[in-house]
Design a protein around this nucleic acid. Structure first.
Lengths: 348, 348
DNA sequence: GTGAAAGCGCTAACAG
DNA sequence: CTGTTAGCGCTTTCAC
């Protein structure tokens, strides 16, 4: 518990110079290798990251900045990213922005000079933070969300539009002309694109949903609850709802339970992002799923290769992963529709 | 995007010495204050954390090391801890150990010299990592889990034993002599104590559960699934199960669904740790809950005060937070029991 | 109030 | 292969 040993302590104790110790540490062959190793363990020597990075300009760390660590999607992204770095010897610093641009600014300012690279899921699209990173020369890859105004970032997205489309088409195919949506934060890429996917798909079928059928939920459970409550209170409520993310879906389902609406008889519901509990709900939840860990792993691979680059300005990569529909049992035909005749039908 | 500005650049540009700039930055009154500020923004100057900590020995960062960021409990702990640091100007580095001692060792070795303090939920109780931190002189507070062998840490626990007891007593009160448990990792504090709570409470009622009634689930969803499958495959299965954490409960419920067992008619189930989805399950899940964010906030407060300490060896604090039972509808009387007579009874 | 200068622990020339 | 030495950017005496 005394003062931590420095490289000088090791050198003295081993009877060599600091450069020899340093070389040995970096992998060069040295005569005193064994002796140095012995002294290192004896003294519990650990190189000081501060000194190393002051000298080298490298920190050996990567930041992973996400809006919500508690969201199972981002937890999966973290797992995916970690699975890649475990090879590379880089440390990951995880940070949470709570879906707030301001918090994100703070976090980034703080991490900026402590890391060699950053994976960022920006809280919103019109947000100067990624540009800040670019200005500071920190290699950055954007994940799940992009910032159109300031190009030049490698990005790993999913097909939000296509995912939303497949969800809405699924509902439409069951006969739900009265399909509503609970959108996330439309300032963010997934929020905007999933809403767009809903609107466009509806329009293609010649349906113009009433304004009330588009509710905002802000990506959090509470927002999903409120939004569903508003939908259910409508004089002429929807027969189906597309909820644009996992957390909001939990909230929406709570509202549905509180009101006593029956799924799928009274209301069909489809979520975005799968979750282990989707299967154990009653009825099991139909969702749009996507390769979450893969998204994290890919982003990390892209970042690593970007960081190891000699020429800093290679062309920008933008990859879009596919979603797929996992059909379970939360979507049925609307009540009173011709399609609802059958064992499940209950109406007059 | 050129070389980041240093304090020397600022000093030159402002026409003062570096020490004046440094003093201004640290809050001293300086004549050139305004001019310096202007130059700082002009040059986008940011002090280098590496240089600062090399000089001062402080890093301005705190590590929060948990076994599983994806577990909603730890996500809540993170939120709680962040709510405290946002005042203190410290950065939080979050790290994941995946419930593995070895991974934890790596992570800690890596973070050791990058932070001023650490909040750690050790993967297991017989694990040298906390001792490693103590040896290195890093102020540490343990959360949720302790390491009995090496005392001397401030610790924030919950009443695992009492929580388990209340769960088992709840089941017993409904008439379930045949109560089984799905335990977490018994190498960890909560795993060990919750199992102990189960055993002791059963014993007090004069019940000795068959060996098969104690299943290990390792705190992950998959383990809970497997464990419940084994329980359900028993020639004489339990009528109630106490599952020792949230993730395993999801797995257990999946197994129950797969097999087609009905809750609570065929089987009662009680979980540990509440979750938003507990309410939307059918039937809603009865659980033992605890103040999660508070646990994180408290740990951070204790760490901060420990870090600001002059005398390094104040007496160790150990706080234990209470749990409470949230009764919903997943526990009923056992089938065929006298208590099951009533509207819910279905047996012969 | 201010500036000059030493030095935190390490790496990377540069000489041997 | 090895040792000497000059900083990396910053804080902090120490003198003014």
């Amino acid at each position: 518990m005394s003062r931590p040993a420095t490289i000088t302590d090791v050198a003295n104790e081993a009877g060599v110079s600091v450069s020899t110790v340093s070389r040995h540490l970096r992998g060069d062959r040295v005569r005193a290798a064994e002796r140095i190793d012995r002294v290192i363990t004896l003294l519990r020597y650990r190189p000081s990251p501060a000194a190393q990075s002051l000298k080298s300009g490298k920190t050996g760390a990567i930041a992973l900045v996400v809006p919500d660590v508690a969201n199972p999607f981002f937890a999966a992204v973290v797992r995916g990213a970690e699975s890649i770095t475990s090879q590379s010897g880089q440390t990951i610093f995880l940070a949470n922005t709570d879906e707030s641009d301001d918090r994100e600014t703070e976090v980034i300012e703080d991490l900026l000079s402590r890391v060699d690279g950053m994976i960022l899921a920006p809280a919103s699209e019109n947000n100067p933070n990624p540009q800040r990173l670019a200005d500071a020369g920190v290699p950055t890859v954007l994940i799940d969300r992009e910032v159109p105004s300031t190009g030049g970032f490698d990005t790993v997205l999913i097909d939000n539009d296509g995912g939303a489309r497949s969800a809405v088409e699924h509902l439409l195919a069951k006969g739900h002309e009265r399909t509503a949506t609970i959108a996330g934060s439309v300032e963010s890429t997934p929020g905007r694109l999933r809403l767009e996917g809903y609107m466009v798909t509806m329009a293609e079928k010649g349906i113009e949903p009433p304004a009330d059928f588009v509710q905002r939920g802000g990506f959090k459970e509470h927002g999903g609850y409120q939004a569903m409550m508003r939908l259910l209170a409508l004089p002429d409520p929807p027969t189906a709802v597309f909820v644009a993310n996992n957390l909001m879906t939990i909230g929406a389902l709570r509202a549905i339970k509180d009101i006593g609406v029956k799924i799928p008889d009274d209301l069909s519901i489809i979520g975005f992002d799968d979750h282990p509990f989707s299967e154990i709900l009653d009825p099991p939840l139909t969702v749009v799923d996507r390769p979450m860990e893969q998204q994290g792993a890919l982003a990390m691979r892209m970042l690593l290769s970007r960081m190891n680059e000699d020429v800093p300005h290679r062309a920008t990569k933008r990859v879009i992963l596919d979603t797929h529909l996992v059909e379970r049992a939360s979507c049925g035909p609307p009540r009173n529709s011709p399609m609802s005749i059958g064992p499940r039908a209950r109406g007059p």
